[in-house]
Design a binder for these strands. Structure first.
Lengths: 167, 167
DNA sequence: CTAAACTTTCAATAATTATTGAAAAATAAA
DNA sequence: TTTATTTTTCAATAATTATTGAAAGTTTAG
């Protein structure tokens, strides 16, 4: 396989993968494009490479910046804006984890806690509260694990995980 | 808040949460409904509770069974099928993790490996391979972590995590 | 076997989500 | 300032995804 073909295949694959994780396909493709690009790209470069409209590029680049995984960059002598994606994949993983945790996990925990306040002393009420409590518990555990992952260094995952499950 | 109100709110919340993780809203709601139900529910019960069509119930219940998180159950004297969701939330978490790992993470690893076979000795090719290698590495690490989580017992997450990040 | 009870399928339709493109707003140069 | 360049917005439209409902298929009872 030739380099450009491989890049295109990577960008396409990443895009379709994204949809199964609730991420906009184009957003994932723009990120993938920037990730394998050797130089900063302008809105026009992205439009051309992915064959999408200016508005679409603007929206998705902004979202990526919002997620903290793409940055604006200025090129000397050029008036327009250029964009780059950080090349450190561990950083990328941490950043995405951090954002999803904040945007999606923490709000769920809040709702679960709130719902547990239900006033009901029947057997059925007790069972409902049990389910909510268990959901909270597992979600909290996952949350605190992610929290620690975000703070940990690049190698904890592989090198130290074994310790955790021994006894 | 009253019990039934709380159940409804829980089911709705779970449904909208699901969409941000790439899960069909109705599928999540059906699961949530079964989770807080004290008895097995028939297709009609689900239709009534969620105000959805028979076909929709059938599709989504089947998907849930496919994911291994809902089971058919037979009620004595009744001809039709009933459904129940396992009430063990840790089991649920493990099952979902297992399925997503198999369906979504493993195929990505395969593609990444395949793409690394690209024949190219330029500087640009090297950089591309570096990015792919790093993506593989982090994905592999996450994958092996999830693998271990699936095999671990209910309390590893909370009780043993601390060990992992020390040193 | 035949009929009733129940489940599954799937083409048509609806609902949701993403994309376009042109106009408005913002920014910088002349 | 005025003008040229670039970015942003957003209503209209397209594409995708989910849902319906009735017909076909299956299973069980009589």
């Amino acid at each position: 396989m030739e380099l450009n073909e491989a890049k295109i295949k990577y960008i396409q694959t990443w895009g379709s993968l994204a949809t199964s994780w609730g991420v906009n396909k184009t957003m994932a493709q723009v990120h993938a494009l920037l990730l394998v690009s050797t130089k900063p790209l302008s809105a026009e470069d992205i439009m051309d490479a992915l064959k999408i409209s200016r508005g679409n590029v603007n929206m998705n680049v902004r979202a990526l910046i919002d997620w903290g995984i793409v940055k604006k960059e200025f090129v000397v002598g050029e008036r327009k804006e250029f964009f780059v994606a950080g090349k450190d994949i561990w950083e990328l993983f941490k950043q995405i984890t951090k954002e999803r945790k904040k945007r999606e996990i923490e709000p769920v925990l809040k709702v679960l806690e709130e719902l547990q306040q239900v006033e009901d002393n029947t057997e059925e009420g007790a069972q409902f509260k049990k389910v909510l409590g268990d959901l909270s518990s597992v979600t909290n555990q996952v949350n605190s694990m992610l929290e620690k992952a975000i703070r940990a260094d690049e190698h904890w995952l592989l090198s130290n995980f074994t310790k955790m499950i021994k006894k």
